[in-house]
């Protein structure tokens, strides 16, 4: 599950803007398979955690209403260029992925 997260963090005027895109099906559990007519089981990201230099800056808890291949953006202060930002997610099947990036 590597490379499921694309993240960009840029600091301007002391405020870091983070933009992240995650590759994930985000199945609601309400959709039917066109061939078999069976419901496709729910498979969605439940929690996204963002940490700056090891300190939590944002925790997102998601339900099935978040779109496929989720997009997330937020802003925080107190970071400088070169700092490490880590983004990780866990889905309802216990699958997980994380990525670290340098703030630019």
């Amino acid at each position: 599950m590597t490379d499921s997260i694309k993240v960009r963090a840029k600091v301007t005027g002391g405020v870091t803007e983070v933009k992240a895109l995650i590759n994930h099906t985000m199945e609601t559990g309400l959709r039917k398979d066109a061939k078999t007519g069976q419901l496709i089981p729910a498979h969605f990201i439940q929690e996204v955690t963002c940490t700056h230099n090891g300190e939590n800056v944002l925790t997102a808890q998601w339900g099935v209403a978040i779109s496929k291949n989720p997009y997330l953006s937020f802003k925080f202060s107190g970071a400088k260029a070169g700092d490490t930002l880590k983004v990780s997610w866990v889905d309802n099947k216990g699958e997980t992925d994380s990525v670290e990036t340098k703030i630019s």
């Binding site: 300190e55 939590n56 997102a60 937020f74 802003k75």
Partner: peptide
């Protein structure tokens, strides 16, 4: 969704 913010997060 519920987003929990830190004191540094806007």
């Amino acid at each position: 969704a519920t987003f929990t913010l830190s004191s540094r997060t806007e």
